[in-house]
Each structure stands twice: as structure tokens, then as C-alpha cells.
């Protein structure tokens, strides 16, 4: 029984995150992972998937629905308990902090579930990091655009070359101990306020 394949169901509307989690879980070995992006139609499929563990985003609006399905599914094993052992407060907190909710069927051994939960938690966190990096990258893109515009404004209003415009921005930034992007942003905003040409 302890060697039987562990059936894990991942429900996540975010496909990128779902695949990151799925990949991690497969690496732990001895598991079969099913990924669904919604709970619609799950009621019909739950007997065929027959999950030992269900992993779902803590903030998923589908959680109340999912818990109701577990109540109703009398024919199959019911993954009722959140986590293996509700007295294991530390790992419950770690999961919830990471934004993971997990349901586990009764009677499964802690040693078998722990790696699955740990992986899910690590992968959720990895996704969060990725998301934050993407946001920063997006921010940098906007900053670069803003600097381009500021250069354009300086080139037009002061008749500077592109290199001279950039040098002016950099010098101003250094003098004021601010980032070039901030100087560029104030310049673009000011030009906009004064009704000047903003597009560069």
C-alpha cells in the first residue's frame, strides 16, 4: 500500500503556475499528477481521478465548491482533512503563508505526504518569485520608455543630440541623487502638465 502510486490532483486556473507545480511533483516520483483549471465537471470526474491529495490555490474562489464535493462524493475516498495531521501547525502555517491549500485522504502516512506538500509549497513560492520578477521587468520596460520620451523632449526643446540629452539626464540625476528614470518621469510629467509635446 505504501508503495502504491500517489494520485495528486492540482486545481489551478493559472496554467503557468499549475505546470510549475506539476513538474515539481513529478520529480518527487511515485506519483500521478492530474491538472485541472476549474472545478466545473469535477464532480463527474472525481471517481475516475480518485485523488489521494488535492492541491489548490488558497485564494481560489472554488474552494467552498470543492469542499462541498468532497462531502457529497460518497463513492470514492474522501480527501477531507486539510493537510495530514491538523496538529502539525508548523507545516500548515508554511502552506497557508505560501498560498497553498491541500486536502488529503484519511489514513495516508505523513512521510508520504510531506514531500508532496513541501514541493507544492516550494513551487508556489517559486512562482510568486517569478511573478514579482516579471513585474519588475515590466516596470523596467516602462522606465526605459519613459527615458526615451524624456530624451526626445530635451532633443526637441533644447536642440540637443541624443547623447547630449542622455548626458543631461544622467548629470541631473547625479546632482540630485536620484535615478535617471525618476528624473525622466518628472520631466515627462512636467512637459505633459505644461501642455508640451510628450510623445517622443
Amino acid at each position: 500500500m505504501a508503495q502504491a502510486t500517489l494520485n495528486i490532483l492540482v486545481i489551478d486556473a493559472n496554467r503557468i503556475r499549475a505546470s510549475i507545480i506539476e513538474e515539481g511533483l513529478r520529480e518527487t516520483g511515485g506519483v500521478r499528477v492530474t491538472v485541472l483549471d476549474d472545478v466545473n465537471g469535477l464532480m463527474r470526474r472525481i471517481a475516475e481521478i480518485d485523488p489521494d491529495v488535492v492541491v489548490i490555490d488558497l485564494e481560489s474562489p472554488n474552494r467552498d465548491t470543492l469542499e462541498h464535493m468532497f462531502q457529497l462524493s460518497r463513492a470514492v475516498k474522501r480527501p477531507v482533512a486539510m493537510f495530514v495531521d491538523s496538529t502539525d501547525q508548523r507545516s500548515i502555517e508554511a502552506a497557508i503563508d505560501a498560498g497553498v491549500a491541500a486536502y488529503v485522504v484519511d489514513g495516508l502516512k505523513k512521510e508520504r505526504i510531506r514531500p508532496v506538500l513541501d514541493t507544492a509549497i516550494t513551487r508556489f513560492k517559486a512562482f510568486e518569485r517569478l511573478r514579482r520578477e516579471l513585474e519588475v521587468a515590466k516596470g523596467e520596460l516602462t522606465e526605459r520608455k519613459c527615458i526615451e520620451r524624456a530624451k526626445g523632449i530635451l532633443m526637441r526643446t533644447r536642440g540637443l543630440s541624443e547623447e547630449q540629452a542622455y548626458a543631461l539626464l544622467r548629470k541631473t540625476a547625479m546632482n540630485q541623487s536620484r535615478r535617471i528614470a525618476e528624473i525622466a518621469e518628472s520631466l515627462v510629467t512636467a512637459a505633459g502638465l505644461l501642455g508640451g509635446e510628450v510623445d517622443g
Partner: peptide
């Protein structure tokens, strides 16, 4: 603010 009652319950359980 939360969307699902289950999440409110879990955040209470871990003292969030």
C-alpha cells in the same frame, strides 16, 4: 477581504 469562506476559516486557524 476574502472570496471564499474556507479561506477565512484557514486564515483564522493559522492566526492570520
Amino acid at each position: 477581504r476574502e472570496t471564499s469562506w474556507a479561506t477565512l476559516r484557514d486564515r483564522l486557524a493559522v492566526r492570520h
